[in-house]
């Protein structure tokens, strides 16, 4: 098919799908009206059942915790997949290191050194960002947020270090091995946290910890520890992917700096 035929063919089919979709949407409940009992029950029951104040977190880590395990595995496998797909072909391992002139330099582009303003701003942000990320992770069961969101925020901290031009520190923080261990440990932690419920005769991921008082940091039973594991896994996973992408650039730049 050439481009034009393909475009028209696709457009006609897409219009047909869209027509079907629109006629289907017209039968949906009107905007802002919720029909099912599921959400109502969860809204009503969660605070009594789990002593936590954020129902969404309870859905993610308790009512439907097994979904979250699956989703984290998706993240884990994506990271592993990226590592596999971006690995250096065995033929290039040796000859890629002898390049004294990087592509950047050769084209007359100097390796950009961040300005003092950037350095101050970014490095100054690292501390608050880490605290904020930890806060989001630790208060997942009390306020909006949780391991996923907090994990991403935490993962941006090393990136700020990179932006500040402190490549050595970035390399030290985001070192492959350490990060991967962190990710796998976070996931293993999640998986293991589900086991006691199974051993004590209930089912996998059943709560075994005391529930505490709702509104306190130590409440909600296993939701908080699972949240922390998720935060570790997510932040580590994201850092790992970023590092793989930046690794090559990093190597050449670090050599150039010396």
């Amino acid at each position: 098919m050439n481009r034009r035929v393909r475009r028209w063919f696709f457009l006609i089919c897409a219009c047909a799908i869209f027509g079907l979709f629109v006629s289907a949407v017209r039968q949906m409940p009107t905007f802002g009206h919720y029909r099912g009992p599921y959400g109502d029950i969860l809204n009503r029951e969660t605070v009594y059942e789990r002593h936590i104040t954020d129902v969404v977190t309870a859905v993610n880590f308790d009512w439907r915790g097994i979904d979250t395990l699956g989703e984290e595995s998706i993240l884990f496998l994506s990271v592993i997949g990226t590592l596999v797909l971006l690995r250096k072909p065995s033929s290039e391992v040796n000859d890629s290191h002898d390049e004294n002139d990087t592509a950047d330099k050769r084209k007359g582009r100097e390796i950009p050194l961040p300005s003092a303003a950037t350095r101050v701003a970014t490095l100054g942000l690292v501390g608050p960002l880490v605290v904020f990320g930890l806060y989001i992770v630790a208060h997942g069961h009390l306020t909006p947020g949780g391991g996923f969101q907090g994990g991403v925020i935490l993962a941006t901290a090393p990136l700020l270090v990179y932006l500040a031009g402190d490549l050595k520190s970035f390399k030290r923080i985001a070192n492959h091995e350490t990060v991967q261990i962190g990710e796998a440990l976070g996931l293993l932690g999640f998986l293991i946290l589900g086991l006691p419920g199974m051993i004590r005769g209930g089912a996998y991921l059943r709560n075994v910890l005391p529930l505490g008082t709702s509104g306190h940091v130590f409440s909600g039973g296993m939701i908080a520890p699972i949240n922390v594991c998720t935060g570790v896994a997510v932040s580590a996973g994201l850092v790992a992917v970023t590092y793989v992408f930046l690794e090559h650039t990093l190597e050449t730049r670090l050599r150039g700096r010396r």
Partner: peptide, 19 residues
Amino acid sequence: VPLPLLIPLAAAFLLGLLN
């Protein structure tokens, strides 16, 4: 029942950890 899911996942995480 959950074991067909958990065993391979645990093994995958473990191997990912040891790498």
